[in-house]
Write a protein that binds this DNA or RNA. Sequence first.
DNA 1: AACCCGGGGAC
DNA 2: GTCCCAGGGTT
Length: 332
Amino acid sequence: MRLQEALLAWYRKNARPLPWRGEKDPYRILVSEVLLQQTRVAQAIPYYRRFLARFPTLEALRDAPLEEVLKVWQGAGYYRRAENLHRLAQAVERLPRCFAELKRLPGLGPYTAAAVASMAFGERVAAVDGNVRRVLARLFARENPSPKELFALAEGLLPEGEDPGVWNQALMELGATVCLPRKPLCPACPLKAFCQGQGNWERYPRPRRREAPEERLAALVLWGAGGVYLERLSGRFRGLYGVPLFPEEELADRAKAFGVAPRYLAEVLHALTHRRLRVKVYGAPWEGVGEDPKGKPLPKLMEKVLGKALPLLAHAGVVPFPHAKPHGVEPR
DNA sequence: AACCCGGGGAC
DNA sequence: GTCCCAGGGTT
């Protein structure tokens, strides 16, 4: 048990003071864990505060319209998380108290269910996130450990008679602050005496790279009375709002469907992890009634698209919104 | 187990 | 540009 004591002693001294540290309210723990899915701590913190200020309880979240939930989530990314959280609030009266049942809730996989079960309810279950995966891969010198193997290794490390929630957090904290992906601080590591990957950290876990293929899209900015045409997006960015976005080759069909003759305005590049989006932005005056995009939850890509299109449309003689001033984009 | 999905930001 | 973040879901 010396390894456990070493890590816990280190954690007590070095744990970062995060807003959810020591939190016992299961709902608040749930919100923090969902926000932290594939999201860095520093980015999640302001959303955590904002979300709980607006939706302090499961009931408050349940009674809120989805659009408002998305609005609070705007900018955090992975908007399905917000949808799932909202669905979850409407599906259960209160949060289930064990890992197996938590895992059945929408948006809760093995990691989040284990995190909530251990931190909120003290269940003795290992939470394996990206940090823990890296720590364990190095500690046990595994190049490509499977989720099953990682879970078994993590279970084996769970200390007796200690708070499993604290232990899980300690392991993650080590990965987040010492056992770093690129430049691990091995000399400062409390587990260096136990680490089988010492000196070969770059082998564990073996990095696997995937190429991000390019996707060619077109966006159509239609300017009518009162603003631009916005629709609820489906597929990518599902749940948020934006101008029509579609494969480039569909431009003619879409323009015809709207009865407009679009002209090319600009090109926007947007990189996701697995795709590089190359978006040609087209604009056209439009007969319909548009909206002010300011009040809608928009993904970053749409902010880029509108940021380029609106000043150019203004230049083309369409009346812009007061706030849609050209910011740095000079029309030519 | 393998693969797909997806926003953002640090570097 | 690359990498990966306190992953989830489907096949």
